[in-house]
C-alpha cells in the first residue's frame, strides 16, 4: 500500500493543523481529523504538527502511539472490528474470532490480500445486549455468526 501523501492529502492535513492550532487540547481532535480524511496519521507530518502546536515530535509520537484508535499506516478499504469483551465471550465470540480469521486468511491488525478488509479487535461496542457484536466501518451488527459476517462483507465491501 502506498505510503506517500498526495498533494491533496497534504493540503488537507495543513488545513486541519491550522484549524486546530489554537484549540485547547487540540492534538486529539487534530489527529482524529487527519485520520478521518487520510485513513491514518502519517509519521512524516509529526514535525509539522509538533511545530504548530508547540510540542516536541516525541510528544506527538507519544500521543499517537498511546491510543489504540490511531494508526500510522494505511489500512484496507473497510475496517472490521470484532468485540473481544466479556459479554461477547459469553455468547461465543472466541469461535467467531477464530472462524473469521480463518475465513479472511488474516490475523488481527492485518489486511486481506485484496486490500479490502482490515481486521481489528475491539473491547466493547456497547451492543452487549446482542452479543456477539462486530462493527464494519461505522455500523454495528448484533447476534453475529461467521456466516452472517461473511455475508455482510460481501454486501458492504463487494457490493
Amino acid at each position: 500500500m502506498d505510503n506517500t501523501l498526495s498533494h491533496k492529502q497534504h493540503a488537507q492535513i495543513q488545513a486541519h493543523i491550522q484549524a486546530h492550532q489554537h484549540v485547547p487540547g487540540g492534538l486529539m481532535p487534530l489527529l482524529h481529523a487527519i485520520q478521518d480524511d487520510i485513513g491514518y496519521v502519517p509519521e512524516t507530518v509529526y514535525p509539522e504538527i509538533a511545530k504548530a502546536l508547540a510540542l516536541s515530535v516525541a510528544e506527538v509520537h507519544g500521543v499517537v502511539s498511546f491510543y489504540h484508535h490511531f494508526r500510522t499506516h494505511p489500512i484496507g478499504k473497510h475496517v472490521l472490528q470484532i468485540c473481544r469483551a466479556e459479554s461477547c465471550q459469553s455468547m461465543g465470540s472466541a469461535n467467531l474470532e477464530a472462524d473469521l480469521k480463518a475465513k479472511l486468511g488474516v490475523d488481527y491488525h492485518q489486511t486481506t490480500a485484496d486490500g479490502n478488509v482490515t481486521l481489528l479487535p475491539v473491547y466493547c461496542l456497547g451492543n452487549c445486549g446482542c452479543s456477539p457484536a462486530v462493527m464494519l466501518d461505522d455500523e454495528v451488527y448484533g447476534r453475529m455468526s461467521a456466516e452472517k459476517v461473511a455475508d455482510l462483507i460481501t454486501e458492504v465491501c463487494h457490493g
Binding site: H32, F66, Y67
Partner: peptide, 25 residues
C-alpha cells in the same frame, strides 16, 4: 464533544483529563 481514541484507561477521570488536554492518557 471530544472524541476519545480507544483507550479504556481514559474512563478513569484523571486519565480522561490528560487526554482532553491532548496528552497520553
Amino acid at each position: 464533544v471530544r472524541r476519545a481514541a480507544g483507550a479504556y484507561v481514559c474512563g478513569e477521570e484523571t486519565s480522561l483529563l490528560e487526554s482532553l488536554e491532548g496528552k497520553r492518557g
